[in-house]
Design a protein around this nucleic acid. Structure first.
Length: 278
DNA sequence: CGCTCCACCTGAACGC
DNA sequence: TGCGTTCAGGTGGAGC
């Protein structure tokens, strides 16, 4: 499911529903997702209150009152979190973790493909954790400057598409928003990183921020799995210029048709007329 | 070391 | 209807 806008949408939904709620019980229905679930560590959150929900890249972080650890949730490709008005509802297929609250509401972690995971980490070790994952900077942060990106791209010789998917440069972009940002920037996904100029980096950053902000406003993109925590779909998929728009007319030049190619094993959608290598 | 590929899973969509 | 194939929003380890 989820790139940064989808994860941010889920975080916002969680803030609306579970802040200040106290965990009654965390139920684990499956011993492992991508990684083994730490039953013991998760049980230490019983009777603790959620004080904040934050996001780093595509990770959701639950913070608690009087607890030195945080719960990290990654949604993988197909993960979602659903809010329930009571703890006794019938759970849907692939509900792997249930967080029951003292007020008898609940949130469930659902993930058919099980590429997602739930980790317990010491708050003080969070920075080390991000460091270990080689996470780069947040795209919506002011830290993302043309100078930073230019420097990062200059030392590499890979396609611009691959570089933007590299989480150690910018953390949070995925296949959809990289395709969209490249198109708006009129840059070829095949352009080699060390040929990207400072000005082009500036343009790229401008459109990365725009496309992410718009997508967050739209509640993310629902292709199949992504849902807000209340069950609503996002609707940014209706604003796609290139992603999943194969053979449709390019919305920039209105002449050429969007094509789909394979890059590093993943689909790239782009306009051969607008998105130049030079 | 830098980079590409593939596995990890389930399920939906499509072709025959 | 059913079976086989391909594809999907991410990540990280193997191998070149």
């Amino acid at each position: 499911m989820p790139e940064l806008p989808e994860v941010e949408t889920v975080c916002q939904g969680l803030r609306d529903t579970i802040l200040e709620k106290t965990i009654a019980k965390i139920k684990i229905n499956r011993p492992n997702l991508r990684y083994p679930l730490d039953h013991q560590a998760l049980s230490t959150f019983h009777n603790h209150k959620i004080t904040a929900v934050t996001r780093r890249s595509k990770y959701i972080i639950l913070h608690f009152d009087r607890h030195q650890d945080v719960i990290l949730i990654h949604l993988g490709m197909s993960g979602r979190i659903h809010n329930y008005a009571d703890t006794t509802v019938d759970k849907v297929k692939h509900t792997h973790v249930e967080f029951d609250f003292k007020d008898s509401t609940a949130i469930h972690f659902i993930d058919p493909r099980r590429f997602g995971f739930v980790h317990v980490i010491k708050s003080t070790n969070l920075n080390d954790y991000w460091h270990g994952k080689r996470l780069g900077i947040e795209p919506l942060n002011d830290e993302l400057t043309a100078t930073y990106l230019h420097q990062a791209l200059q030392v590499k010789k890979i396609s611009l598409k691959a570089a933007l998917l590299d989480q150690s440069i910018i953390a949070g972009l995925g296949n959809i928003y990289v395709c969209e940002a490249l198109h708006l920037s009129k840059l070829s996904p095949y352009k080699i990183t060390n040929t990207v100029t400072l000005e082009q980096c500036d343009t790229l950053i401008h459109f990365i921020k725009i496309v992410l902000r718009k997508a967050i406003q739209a509640g993310g993109s629902t292709l199949r799995d992504h849902k807000k925590v209340n069950g609503d779909t996002g609707y940014f998929q209706f604003d796609f210029h290139v992603y999943n728009q194969e053979s449709k007319l390019c919305r920039l030049c209105e002449v050429e048709k969007i094509i789909r190619v394979k890059q590093n094993g993943r689909s790239t959608f782009y306009c051969t007329a607008c998105q130049l290598v030079s």
